[in-house]
Design a protein around this nucleic acid. Sequence first.
DNA 1: GAGCGGAGAGAACGTTCGTTCTCTCTCGGT
DNA 2: ACCGAGAGAGAACGAACGTTCTCTCCGCTC
Lengths: 192, 192
Amino acid sequence: MNISEARTRIVASADELYNARGIQAVGMDELRAAAGVSLKKLYQEFPSKGSIVMAVLERRHRSWAEGLDATVRQAPTPRARLLAIFDYLAQWFGEDSFRGCGFVNSFAELGAVSPDVADYARQHKESFQEYVGKLSEDAGAPPYLGPQLSILAEGAQTTAAIAGTVDAAVQARQAAEVLIDVALGHEVRGAA
Amino acid sequence: MNISEARTRIVASADELYNARGIQAVGMDELRAAAGVSLKKLYQEFPSKGSIVMAVLERRHRSWAEGLDATVRQAPTPRARLLAIFDYLAQWFGEDSFRGCGFVNSFAELGAVSPDVADYARQHKESFQEYVGKLSEDAGAPPYLGPQLSILAEGAQTTAAIAGTVDAAVQARQAAEVLIDVALGHEVRGAA
DNA sequence: GAGCGGAGAGAACGTTCGTTCTCTCTCGGT
DNA sequence: ACCGAGAGAGAACGAACGTTCTCTCCGCTC
């Protein structure tokens, strides 16, 4: 077996287990079993559990950013691209494995004791906010729209995770529509 | 020393410590020291760490609900009362001890392994959503406004916690203004 | 004053965790 | 065929945790 094959499998298993049950609740032996790897090889690939956690965060960031961008790219107009963010959320929330944003969760679990985890979570959120800001700019919206939509997306994730329903994605999407149209100077009528 | 005095001090210390460093990172001995109580008395008041966690959640819920309601009551109109939610958030985010919503954090840490914690977090969020829904109804807004504002508030909390700034509260407040006015059928002009 | 109940301090226990060590087996080169 | 390097399985280790037990001391009752 290739060395990097083992790395990949370890990180993938860790991602799945940490997401499902929390980082601190999953021990190295359980991870070893799930990855089908010896404990020796585990510590040969990663010097510590902390480094596995960081590798998982990197994997999550790549996966999220790529998935989001793929969905957004399919939308034809700048306005549709902004709304596509919430379609991506809706699809994500519907997955059985969805248990909230992995960065929020790891920040809550380890942010206070691990500066690395806290910094990475911050970076991930900043990168998302920049992405949304760029999409907003492309749509010709004033700069306040980006943060507003980012906050909506963030709130939808937390709400969906704790309530256990997909509703938050469509509610956030409807709110986003209003905010976008107002920011673009369109006429908006409230539905009664 | 009165028995319920000890209980109160234990729960207050636990709240502070759990908030600052995470529940799993704080051991019973550290809590005992912070509360100024013997380990014996600790287990005399609470049968287990889990029961202390639940008591902390109850305390947090009461404190949050009372603080929010006090701020909201000061606002003169239904519209101002809806916006007061975000003033409350802004003040909260500015506190040194702010480290994100305690229910989101405990859900992230223990929700997957403790149904009690998960259920309580769900109840807390539901209760907040009902509260916002009631305020929306009082303002004469259509029923979709409540969830929209709840999601905004939720997102502001997470964003402020991870970014470490208060900005999210005022950004969410501005978005809320737009959503409220559109929902009430007012004319809204986008600022450019 | 003697004895007793309860409280505080902290040692002790059993478990779990992250990490390392040991033992055994296999496989490739001469 | 033999020897050495490397890998797998899992025992072992030290620390930390939640929880319980022990010991000592204080104040109250007869």
